[in-house]
Amino acid sequence: MTALALALALAAAPGVSSRLPAGPLDLYRIAWMRPVVGPQAMESRPLEPGGVAVDPETGYAVFGTRDGWVHALRPDGSVAWELRTAGSFWAPPAIDHGVAYVGCTDGRLYALATATGKELWRYDAKEELGTRPAVADGTVFVMSLQDTLFAVDAKTGAWKWHHRREARAGFTVRGAAWPVARGGTVWAGYSDGWVAALDVANGATRWERTVAPAGDYLDVDAIQLDGKHLYATAFSGAVLAMDAATGDPVWAFRAPGAARLVLGRGAVIAVTSSSVHALDPAAGHVLWTAPLGGAPGGGAPVIAGPWVLVPAGQGGLRFLEASSGRTLRVLDPGTGISSTPGVGGERVYVLSNGGDLLALDLR
Rank of each mutant, 00 (worst) to 15 (best):
P21G: 07
G103V: 05
S88G: 15
P333S: 04
G355L: 06
S339W: 01
W90H: 14
E321Q: 10
A312L: 07
D96H: 09
R165S: 03
G284P: 00
L198S: 08
T2Y: 00
G313I: 02
A238T: 15
P92T: 03
S78K: 12
W207H: 08
A176V: 01
G184Y: 13
G257H: 13
A72L: 08
P213C: 03
G193Q: 04
S191I: 00
M242L: 14
V37G: 05
L109I: 05
L109H: 06
V180W: 11
S191M: 02
V302F: 12
F171N: 10
G193Y: 10
A5L: 12
L351S: 08
A72I: 00
G266I: 02
E127T: 11
P133T: 09
D361Y: 06
L73T: 06
V54Q: 14
V99T: 15
K126P: 11
L149Y: 12
G345Y: 03
A270T: 06
R329S: 10
G247L: 07
L4R: 15
A244C: 00
W121D: 11
A22M: 11
V330T: 15
T58K: 04
K228Q: 15
R45A: 10
L279P: 01
G344N: 07
I95Y: 08
T131M: 04
S273A: 12
R265E: 02
D147E: 11
S339G: 03
L317W: 00
L358A: 09
V250G: 12
Y123K: 10
F253N: 02
A9E: 15
V152A: 06
G38I: 03
R318T: 03
L218R: 15
D332C: 05
I30D: 06
A300V: 11
D248F: 04
L198G: 09
S339F: 04
P256C: 00
D221H: 13
T148E: 05
A125E: 09
V36F: 15
T172P: 03
V350S: 07
A80H: 06
T289Q: 09
W161Y: 14
L279W: 00
L109T: 08
W288S: 01
A111Q: 11
A86S: 13
G138R: 06
W161S: 01
W307N: 11
A176G: 00
D199P: 01
G257V: 09
I223F: 05
F141I: 09
G247D: 09
W207S: 08
P256V: 01
L317T: 02
D192P: 08
A177T: 09
W81I: 07
T148R: 14
A244D: 05
A232N: 07
